[in-house]
Each structure stands twice: as structure tokens, then as C-alpha cells.
Design a protein around this nucleic acid. Structure first.
Lengths: 248, 248
DNA sequence: GCAAAAGTGTTTCGTTTACACCCATGC
DNA sequence: GCATGGGTGTAAACGAAACACTTTTGC
């Protein structure tokens, strides 16, 4: 039989006619350092899976939606305050949590490098390159695979890649990001042509240099490139018409 | 304040340290009558939303996954015994159920007309054409919109359309199905060319006429067409390689 | 016999792909 | 000065879209 962890020294005061699973949320946070796609993990301080790495997450409160719960837990555990996450789905294997029946609603988020510095009390939180991820707690390995699949699909239909770059970026940076997500290489000229055709990019004329941080990370030999930024107006149009298609 | 329905004459015997939402599952079942895309609804016999139409579904048991729960509820409420459903996601608005906090994990299914006849005790279950759907209970209108969006997306990447047709079908039947799902019209010759290129179809030489039922439904003037069936071997290959793309 | 659906190929156009040389920077 | 990455255009191949006439069947 399965072992259940017992809870001590508390009043068990919520009673129902039928048994109920606990409902938790988890958040797969992707970041991009200019070269590799990364995910944000926290080291578990308690059993089960103490010492293991896992996605930030926790139990849902009764007065919040799953999305709000995921955002709150992310803020509490990593210091990250973001506002756009996308649902991956519910994970409901009967044995996925050794403590008992827990259904988890998972989300994924894409964040800019600039937002990472906002993390402060993220003592146990760390970034891992995708091909350097340790074995994860619970069924989080499986959730990660699902998140990658979803991200690879979504990037063809939604210009979400831009959430992973700073306000302005060069074309090679954007290309490396797409290559990291999709795991393929593109021809530079064809990539640029296709991206510009979508109409979602605009050229940044004056370099305001608000990207110092990111540039330090990616400082490499090579000519300083023309910078682009992301045209929010067109993005909203694409979301409405659902006609953003980026075939690769 | 919100009204909670009280439960009488029962022992409330499941007690937890923190409050827990109830977890339910719902299933959006699509069918195709040769002309219109339809969905299967049941009429609610109890409050809340008594007399309203809703998706088949119900509360999840502790020893089953969400998927198993959705399949079980579908069987219980409509008599349909199917085995392939796809998760839409969790719906967790705080106010979505007037009885209290209920998180629903929704799925969708595509079924062949032949499977419909299997329904027996489906006394309160009925098919509705998509543009004739009544106002639904709970947030099921919203769930339906999400299901349609998902279906329109998925059909480009997975050869799921075939689940809605009988074992063998004519090219115009298949085309009408795609047109009903996507809400557009195609050129007959280009549609056939594209479909055959995918390699997922095979020609049925001898007409075994196991489709009498369906043919009654769709009997229309017109030449009796060449019949095709769906090549399962190639389907599995497509799922693996994830390289089924049907651009329209 | 007439209306409605089904069968069948080719041409045109647009999109995608492949490809090479020069320049700027960091070491 | 050399290695690495960034910038730029064109031609060939491929895939998508447009298009008309004939045959069958139900009424």
C-alpha cells in the first residue's frame, strides 16, 4: 500500500461528503541567456523529494483561479512577478504525489532576462540549461516534456518568442532563440526575411542602451547589429485574427 | 454573498486541514452527420441549472485519473464507450459553479456516427448542430468556445478528422467535414491532392457496405464516389514524427 | 431532362530554399 | 592579422491556387 504522510498539530476542520483531491499549480518558467534555453527550478526544502529540484508551485487557495495561484506561488518562491502565463493542462495521475491524491494544473511562462534580476528572496531558485536539468521531483520531468512540446507548437502561432528577449534585440539574437526552442538551424537571410514579412518587428533607430545587462551576457565578437523591437499593435491584431503563422 | 447548496442526510466524513475545491470532469463530444458538426449534450435533472443543457461530466473519483473520470461519466450519462479523448485544460474560475468551488478538467472527443447507435440509456442526451446550441449550464459556453478553438488548431497537426467518419468514406465527405470544422470552403481538386499527398489515406477497393447507416444520413444526388479509408500505420508514424501538417 | 454532386489535370503564381562575398570587432 | 559573427540579394525549385467540362444520380 501507499504511504500517506500524516499531518500533526493541526486542526482538520474542512469536511466534505466525498473525498477530494488536493489541487496544486506548477509553473514552468523559460528564460533565454542568448545561447541556451533555460528553466527556473527551486530546491525542495521539505519531504517528499527533499533536496530535489522542482518547478515553483503549490496548493491553490479557494479564492483564486488556478492561474492566480500559479502566479502567486511563483512570486512567493522565486520573487518573479510576471503577468502572462499559459496553461499546459491538468496532471492527474493517481500516484503522482506520494502524500496522497494531488491534481496539479501546470502553466508555462516565458520571461525576459531583465525580469530575472527582480528575483531577490529566490535563495533556493536556480536556472538550468535545458540539457543540464537534474531529475525532477514528482512527475515534473513529464510536465517539462509537455511544456517543451507545447512551446514548440505555440511558437509557430503566437509571437511569444519576444517575451524571452529584451525590448530591443538583434536579428541574430532572435534567430538563436528560435533555434534553441526548435532545436534546428536556419539560414540567416531566410530567417530575417520571414521575420520581417510577418510585420511584427520594427526597427529601433536610437539605441537607448537599456539592455546593458543582456549585452554583457552575450558579448561576443561581431559587428554591432541593427536592433529591432516588437510591435505590440500588430501582435494584438495577430492574436485576434489568429493568422500569425511562422512556418519553419 | 454567494449561496451554497447544503447537503442533507449524509455523513460528511472526509476532513482536511485546508479547504479543497471539488474536482470534476466534462467532455465535449463532437459528431458529424455528413453536413453539420454536432455536439452531444445532456439535460440536467438537478439543480443547479436544472433543465439546462450541459456537457456530460461529473465528479472525479479518488482512484481514477481525470481522463478515466471523463470516460466513465460519458459512459454513465450517454452510454457512449469510447477510448480516445484529448484534454482541453482546467477551468477554475472561482464562481463557475454556484454550489461552491469546483474545478473542472475538460476534454474533447471525436466520434464516428456508428458509435452513436451504441448509446442506449442516453435518454436525456441529444445531439445539437453547432449553430443551434442552446445556452449551456455553468461556464460550458466558454468551454465550448475553447474546444472549437482547440479542434481547429489540432486538425492541422493530427489526422483526427477521421475519427468523425466511418471506416470508409468518400473524398467529398472528408472535405465537408474539414469545411464544417474550419468554417471555410475548399477547391475539390486541391483538397483531394493535398489529402492524398499526406499518405494517410488508402483506397478501399471492395465496398463492403458497412456504412449503410451513414449513407442513409447523407444520401444526396451525385455519383457514387470512390471510397477511402484511413491508414493507421501511417497515422502512428505521423504521431511519432509530429510531422503531419495540413496547411489550409 | 434537369438540377446537384462527383470525377478529373494543367497552368500560373507566389513562397521557400539554396547559396557567396565582404565587413566589423575582439583577441 | 586572424577568427568569429554580422550584413546583404538573386536564381532555381517547389508547392499552392486557380480554373472547366463531363458523368452520374435523384427527382
Amino acid at each position: 500500500m501507499r504511504t500517506f504522510y500524516t499531518i500533526k498539530n493541526t486542526t482538520m476542520s474542512y469536511t466534505y461528503e466525498y473525498p477530494r483531491p488536493a489541487v496544486a499549480t506548477d509553473c514552468v518558467v523559460f528564460g533565454f541567456n542568448g545561447r541556451d534555453l533555460q528553466i527556473l527550478l527551486i530546491e525542495r526544502g521539505n519531504e517528499p523529494f527533499k533536496g530535489c529540484w522542482a518547478f515553483p508551485g503549490g496548493f491553490m487557495n479557494m479564492d483564486e483561479t488556478a492561474e492566480q495561484s500559479a502566479l502567486r506561488e511563483l512570486q512567493e518562491e522565486t520573487g518573479l512577478a510576471i503577468n502572462r502565463i499559459k496553461q499546459l493542462g491538468a496532471f492527474s495521475d493517481v500516484q503522482r504525489d506520494p502524500r496522497g491524491r494531488v491534481v496539479s494544473i501546470a502553466f508555462y511562462a516565458l520571461i525576459r532576462p531583465a525580469e530575472v534580476t527582480g528575483g531577490d528572496d529566490a535563495s533556493e531558485a536556480r536556472w538550468f540549461a535545458l540539457d543540464d536539468v537534474p531529475r525532477l521531483a514528482f512527475d515534473h520531468d513529464y510536465i517539462l516534456r509537455k511544456a517543451m512540446q507545447q512551446l514548440r507548437k505555440d511558437i509557430h502561432f503566437e509571437p511569444i518568442g519576444f517575451d524571452l528577449l529584451n525590448k530591443s534585440f538583434t536579428m541574430p539574437e532572435l534567430q538563436r532563440l528560435y533555434e534553441a526552442i526548435l532545436g534546428v538551424r536556419f539560414d540567416r537571410r531566410n530567417f530575417e526575411k520571414k521575420m520581417l514579412q510577418t510585420g511584427i518587428l520594427q526597427i529601433v533607430e536610437d539605441e537607448e542602451d537599456d539592455d546593458d545587462l543582456f549585452e554583457q551576457l552575450t558579448s561576443k565578437p561581431g559587428r554591432k547589429g541593427r536592433k529591432f523591437s516588437f510591435n505590440k499593435e500588430n501582435y494584438d491584431r495577430f492574436k485576434q485574427d489568429n493568422n500569425f503563422k511562422l512556418e519553419f
